[in-house]
Every structure is written in C-alpha cells, then in structure tokens.
Design a binder for these strands. Structure first.
Length: 824
RNA sequence: GCGGGAGUGGCGGAAUUGGCAGACGCGCUGGAUUUAGGAUCCAGUGGGAGACCGUGGGGGUUCAAGUCCCUUCUCCCGCACCA
C-alpha cells in the first residue's frame, strides 16, 4: 500500500475496473425489492457544471446506499439532447447540430464517468436519436388517436429571438424563459395537447404526492388554478345574441353596471362594424394588441377601456348595461368577457371611478352600512345581499350557489369550474427537435403517419442560415411525401415538438431502453415504475414535473402502463453559489468541476458538495471547504495506512473483556452507523451524515493513541468506516477496502447494521438547572432511577448554595437528562 | 398584492419529539515534530475580567423555547389584472 493518497491514479483505476466488471448493470425480476433512483437528465451543453455535480452526487449516494441495503437499484443516465443551442452552434460555427450534440454527449459522459457515478450505462438514452424519437412520435400519435392532440388557430406566444412559439409555461413575466426576449402575440395554427382534460386529475392527486416538497405542490396547485363560479349569459340588445361571462361571484350579479370584452373578443368587431364606434374602437384594440405582454398583463398597468356603442340585458333584473372593451380582460381565460361590479371588485371599482360608471352596493357588511359616496375601495369581504330582489337578506356565501342555481333554472347560466391551466402548445418552428408525425393532403387533410413508417427522420444534411426559419421548409425531400390515406401528393408538417415532450417519458424508456418493437415493454415498465426517488432543480417545479405527470396519466389511460404518477418522492436541490450569487460566465465566478476533479479528485469534490449544506438549500462554494474535505480523505488514508502497516495490532490476541475505551469506540461506531443510515435513507441530510463519519474517524484516531486496543473491534470499526464512506467517496473507499485485504468490491458489501445494545452508555452526564438555567453538570450511572438521580443532584454543592434561604417551589427530574430546581 | 422559505459564532452549518445552543468542517490561537517552511498530530476557540449575557427585534405560554403562540423587521424564491 502506498503511503500517499494518489487520487488520480486510484480514481482512474477503479473507474476502469468497475466498467470492466459491469458492476452497476441491473436487470429486472430480481427477488430483491426494486428501487428506481433517478436524477434529471442533462441537456448536453458540452460541460458539466457544479449544479450537475451536486445533482448527481446526491443521486449516487442514494443509489449506492440502497444497493448496499439490498435493493435492486435502477440508476440510469441519458441526454435531453434536442433543443435550440445545437442550432445556434450550427448557425454560429457551421457545425451540424447532430455532430455538435453527439460530441458534447461524448465529452460530458467522460466527465460523468470521472465522477465515479454508479450508472448502468447500458441503459443510456439520447432523445435526439431516431431509436428514441421514433417512440416520442409514436406517443404523440397515441395522444392524437385518443383525441388529446389537436391543431387550432389561436393567439400564441412568439419569441422573436428564438423564432418559435412558446408554451404558456415557457413565458416568464411576459418574456421568453430561455432568452428573456419579450414575447409577442401571433395568430397561428398550432398543435396542442389537451392537458386541460387532466386539470382536475392533476390537481386531485397532488395530495398523493407524499414525498414531494410542499413548495412544489403549491406551485403546481397555483399553476393549475382551479376556480369555482358560474357562467352567466347576458343578452346583447342589438342582436339578441347571448354573451356569456364567467364570474366567481354570481352573488353580485345585481350589482353589474357594465360588461367588458377582451380586445380580441370576436363580438367587438361584430358590434362596431358600420357604426360610429368602428374607427375609435378599432384603434383602441390595435393599441392594446401592440403592447408587450409584460405591459399588458401587469397588474400595475393603468386600466383603459372604451364603450363600444351596444348594451346588454342583465338576465336577473332585465337592466340594460353598457358594453365596453378594456385592456385588462384576458381573452384566453373564461369566456373572454367579464361583468363589471364596481362595488365588490377592486379592478372594477378603479375602472368605474375612472370612467364614471355607476356603482351599486349589493353586499352589505354585517357591522356597518356601505355608502357609495364614501367608498374609496371595493368591498370584497362577506356580507348580506341587498338590492338583489328575492335574494335580499341572504348571506352572500349562500347567495353564490343560490344565484347560480336560479340562473340555471331560468336558462341564463350554469355553475362552472374554470382552470388557469391552458392546453399545452407543443409546436416549435425549429429544426433540432422530434418532427411532428403528420402529413397534410389536399384531399384528406391532416393525416397521421402510420406507425410502420416511423420514425419520421430528421434530415441531417441541412444548411443553416441566420434567418430564424426552420431549414426543414427548404428540404424538398423532407417536405414532399405521399398521403398515407389516398397515396396522392402531400406535405409534411415541418414543425417539431417541444423538447419537454421528449423529457415527459424518458424515465419509462430507461426501463426498456433497447426495445425496437415498443416504446417500452409494459411488464418492465410496471416492474420499475414509479421512480422511487427523483432528484433535480426546483426550476422544473412546474413545466417538466407537470408535463411528466400529465403524460403518465394519459399513458395509463391508453393502457400502456399501470401507474398514474411518475415520481414517488422528489428532492429539489438548491443552487450552487459563489460569492453569494449564482455561478455565471458573465459574473466570472464559475468554478469548473473538471478543474476541481483534476486538483483534488472526484471523491473530494463529491464529499464537499454533500457536506457543505443540506441538499435542499443553496450551497456557497468555498475553496477552503474543499481543501478541508481533501484533508479529511487524507486523514482516512493515513488511518488505514498506519493500521495496515502496524504488524503488532494484527498479531494481538482478541481480548476477553472490553475496557471502557473499547466500549466507547464501539458505541461511537454503532452510533455512526445508525446516524449515517438515517441521514441517507430517511432524512436526506447528507451533510450531517458526512459529519458523523468525520466524528468516527476522529474517534478512531483517539482510540489508536490508547495503550491497548481490541484488534477485532478495531478491524470491525475500520471496515465499517469504509463501507459508510463508500457511497460518498467511492474510489478511496474501494482502494482502502482492498488494501485491507478484501477481495470483493466495497460497493457490493451489505450495509452494516447497528447493535442497539452497543448504543447504551453506562454513564451519562446530567445537568443541574436552577430555574431553567444550567448551573452544574454531573456524571451519573445511566440506569440511575428518577428518585436516586434527584437525591444525588439535590445534594450537590451548587444546588445547596442556590436553595439556601429560598423556597423550593418544585423539582423537575428528567432521567438521563436533567434536574431542574425551581426556587423563589 | 398573494403564496412559500429563511434569519443561529469570524464563515458554511448542527441541535430529528419543547430538555446541556453552537455537532462537524473552515478560519484563528497555542503546543509537539521539523534546520526552516509546509504537511501532520494534540489542545483550545460564542461574548464578557466577572456575576452573567447570548439563536433578527418586541411580547407571550412553560419548571424549561432556536424549537410553540402573537407581533414586527430584513432577505431569498414562486405567482401576479385569471374576473
């Protein structure tokens, strides 16, 4: 055994060895219980960053731990490899996207391997390869065949910089999630998936996600945004047509003083055509539509509107109220029209004040009387209905359903549930994605590509121009095809799918990655799913995690798999920061994993990133902290080195009886086993797990200084130490394990069990408190009875001093912990 | 504005069920070793000379509060005209 810890030699050696032995290969159907440990697969940007290191270190500790605990562990890795950066590289550097992507994968895979991660590389998938996207296309067609994929013309979010449309979820504060460019609205014909059909289901099963952080569950709940209310039909006076509005407050319907349409509402144009309002209203609508999404959807934006010259009839009281158009009404939500009740809605109140529209109180608070002239803000709390005909006197909460049901009776409305969630726009006007497998025929319309013709291959020999247009439009061999229906000439769809589609089912493909006949074998998927532990960044709280849940429910409904939720437990790791902020090139505070691994080794990098903070919290990078972890591994190395070298210890006879020092070490050892097991397996607090291992090492150093040791105990402690360390620092543990003379891998050892009896201390320290404040300490026998403990502590000098001349009110004794004397 | 999370030594962080605040690591101080430095090993390290005081501030419950309740401040994250 070498005296020095030569990490680079050791790490290379064991990485090669593990690969040759195929140590991490798994197959299904083992008699062991399965455990599916999954980390979010990366986009192959070309280089690993610290966020990846953190993500994959966490996953690897869990996977290795579960493996040693006797589970059949599936721990795969792959590549989310479609996406825009590959195209940008092509435009900028003239490298074809496929080559750029595959080169990046190769490089990143090397880096992942250099971290010593326990992946079954035989299950590697890359979403950009035809053997994967064939099945992405097939799944799309399943959605299509079940009526869950459809094409419609609508106002969609367009990012001018990315030159493509975006899903609602990809618009952040009115700007493109990727490049921060303000999005524009465009009216385009696009493919959607009917995620709204699953809105209620997605919401209802959130409480079942027991192992998910509340934060993520709440975010999803808010995103789905269920609201209960009523749809109420007003009648347009001029045309007699019904104009439905959606409201959560049908109890305020008697307080309606105007109605507002969204600028995009088709009835606007219909009602102004040929009237004196035509020109000014058109101008107003145009102005609103020219506003950026950010300005338009901000709550701070001044509410502006305009009367459009028509009136509608309130179905409850037959009142005639004016019809307006205004910038604050969203066409996409509800019916695109709202009723204005200024007295009881803040926005309506502001609007009515601005345009001098009437305000009528229809809900009175219980303890005071509202006077319109005195109101400075809308009254939105609960109260009693007034000015509401036969509903007068009814508490408004009851009024909500009473009015809704009455409207239903008279045929002027119905109870209605609305969701904020919109259907998922999946078309992208980009090249580097999975082609949507549809062809357009003049005779037959949109026709799905037959399963046997899949995959619709992405042509690889393409030319990129910085026009923003998808090159697929310029490739006749791709574009022109024959109709699968009638055999006539047809055109292919040139849009590709949102890459979130590819990542919505990859965890299923890992269960059966090589299958050429199916997306995945049902039995294999049923065996491995669902994912027992999923680990990734919280930035995916909504998009990826919601889409994947939607896919799982749909695939279950298609009968392809038995489970309905993809991820049993979810761990969202915090960011890796440097100098208090996120690492970024522009700030110049990036620490590259490669650099750290070269300087200290992967084991040190892993250990530091797990030790520096609990996984959910942000982690501040510290070069000195890394140094400390490196020192610790050296300390472990020397401990084992000295042990192996010391012939006396190995020759020593086993002792008949353990001394106090022996028992202390044994208690420390078993306490460490317990702590590390719980910290990895139950609490997911790897930082305290590492600290427990450090304490064990400190204890072993002290033990080595003792005059006599128990050789059997020492050997057991050092063996166990290496097993406990193995999930965190796999290379050094393996090397030292073999240096101790073991023939098999440390990673295939059974995780040690702790002995409850060994944990029991013979002596404990108890505390003397006076009025709750610690005044003295005392070592006593651990099994001392309550009475004896109290007697002993009360007899202490400090106790006597404090009781002198005072009245003892009471004495609280907690055996094994403390005696608190309350004096007056 | 709404929702969520966090404020603990010089720093990262521990304290799992209300029971010894500051585990472990960094940094710092001292000692041993060494020609010397580095490395290593050992010891010390919240503040205060001390009685004592200490978990963002104020109040409360309790024999006992970092932990529970009320209130307030600061920071971070998510959503934000969804009728």
């Amino acid at each position: 055994m070498q005296e020095r810890y030569n990490f680079s030699e050791i790490e290379a050696k064991w990485q090669k060895e593990w690969e040759q032995e195929d140590l991490y290969k798994v197959t299904e159907g083992d008699e062991k219980e399965k455990y599916y440990c999954l980390e979010m697969f990366p986009y192959p940007s070309g280089n690993l960053h610290m966020g990846h290191v953190r993500n994959y270190s966490i996953g690897d500790v869990l996977a290795r731990y579960k493996h040693m605990k006797g589970y059949n562990v599936l721990h795969p890795m792959g590549w989310d490899s479609f996406g825009l950066p590959a195209e940008n590289a092509a435009i900028k550097h003239g490298i074809p996207p496929a080559k750029w992507t595959l080169d990046n994968i190769e490089n990143m895979k090397k880096q992942l391997i250099s971290m010593g991660l326990s992946y079954d590389w035989g299950r590697e998938v890359a979403t950009c390869l035809p053997d994967y996207y064939k099945w992405t296309q097939w799944i799309f067609l399943q959605f299509y065949k079940h009526g869950l994929a459809y094409k419609k013309k609508s106002y969609v979010n367009w990012c001018p910089d990315c030159a493509t449309v975006l899903a609602n979820e990809q618009v952040v504060n009115g700007a493109c999630e990727r490049c921060d460019t303000p999005v524009e609205k465009k009216s385009l014909e696009q493919w959607f998936l009917r995620i709204t059909d699953y809105a209620q289901d997605l919401l209802d099963s959130i409480p079942d996600l027991k192992g998910w952080p509340d934060k993520v569950k709440i975010m999803q709940e808010n995103w789905i945004g269920r609201s209960e209310g009523a749809e109420i039909s007003f009648t347009v006076e001029k045309t007699g047509k019904k104009l439905p509005v959606y409201t959560t407050r049908p109890d305020t319907t008697f307080g309606v003083s105007y109605l507002v349409l969204a600028p995009e509402h088709p009835m606007v144009e219909e009602l102004i055509a040929g009237t004196e309002y035509e020109e000014p209203v058109r101008k107003f609508v145009r102005n609103v539509q020219q506003m950026s999404e950010i300005a338009r959807t901000s709550a701070e934006t001044e509410k502006e509107g305009m009367f459009i010259g028509s009136y509608v009839i309130n179905p409850l009281n037959q009142e005639k109220v004016p019809l307006w158009v205004a910038n604050y009404v969203l066409y996409e939500y509800g019916t695109g029209a709202v009723m204005g009740v200024p007295a009881h809605d803040e926005r309506d109140f502001m609007f009515a004040k601005k345009y001098d529209l009437p305000i009528r109180v229809v809900i009175q608070p219980k303890d005071q009387e509202l006077k319109v002239e005195e109101m400075t803000t809308a009254f939105v709390e609960d109260g009693v209905m007034v000015n509401s005909g036969k509903f007068d006197g009814l508490p408004n909460q009851e009024g909500i359903s009473a009015v809704a049901h009455y409207l239903e009776e008279i045929g002027a409305g119905n109870v209605k549930v609305n969701f904020r969630l919109r259907d998922w726009l999946i078309s992208r006007q980009r090249y580097w994605g999975a082609p949507i497998p549809i062809v357009y025929c003049d005779k037959c319309g949109a026709v799905p590509v037959p399963d046997e013709d899949l995959p619709v291959r992405l042509p690889l020999d393409v030319e990129f121009r910085p026009t923003g247009e998808s090159p697929l439009n310029n490739i006749p061999e791709f574009l022109n095809t024959t109709c699968p229906c009638c055999g006539g000439p047809a055109r292919r769809e040139t849009d590709t799918m949102d890459t979130f589609i590819c990542s919505s089912w990859y965890f299923l493909r890992y269960a059966d990655p090589k299958n050429a006949e199916e997306a995945f074998n049902k039995e294999k998927a049923n065996y491995w799913m669902n994912v027992d532990q999923y680990i990734g960044g919280v930035e995916h709280a909504i998009m990826h995690l919601l889409y994947a849940r939607f896919f799982m429910k749909a695939l279950n409904d298609f009968g392809l798999v038995d489970v309905r939720e993809p991820f049993q437990r979810l761990l969202t790791q915090g960011m890796v920061l440097k100098d208090g902020t996120k690492m970024s090139k522009s700030k110049g505070n990036v620490v590259s994993p490669e650099e750290i691994i070269n300087k200290y080794g992967a084991d040190t990098a892993r250990l530091f990133i797990l030790f520096a903070a609990p996984p959910e919290r942000d982690l501040e990078w510290s070069d000195q902290g890394v140094e400390g972890c490196y020192r610790f591994l050296n300390r472990v190395w020397r401990l084992v080195y000295n042990y192996v070298k010391d012939e006396n210890i190995k020759k020593a006879e086993a002792k008949a009886e353990l001394t106090k020092d022996d028992k202390d070490l044994r208690r420390l050892l078993h306490g460490s086993i317990k702590k590390v097991s719980e910290d990895i397996g139950e609490r997911f607090t790897f930082n305290t797990g590492v600290s427990a291992i450090m304490e064990l090492v400190n204890g072993l150093y002290h033990y080595r200084d003792k005059a006599e040791q128990d050789p059997a105990l020492l050997k057991d402690a050092i063996d166990s130490l290496l097993i406990l360390l193995a999930p965190f620092a796999p290379h050094i543990s393996e090397e030292l394990w073999h240096a101790l003379g073991h023939q098999t891998s440390v990673h295939t050892q059974a995780w040690p069990e702790y002995d409850e009896e060994a944990l029991v201390a013979e002596e404990v320290e108890v505390v003397l408190q006076i009025n709750g404040k610690v005044r003295d300490r005392l070592k006593v026998a651990a099994n001392l009875s309550r009475e004896e403990l109290e007697k002993t502590v009360l007899a202490m000098e400090k106790a006597q001093q404090n009781m002198q001349g005072k009245q003892v009110v009471k004495v609280i004794t907690v055996p094994g912990k403390l005696v608190n004397i309350v004096v007056k």
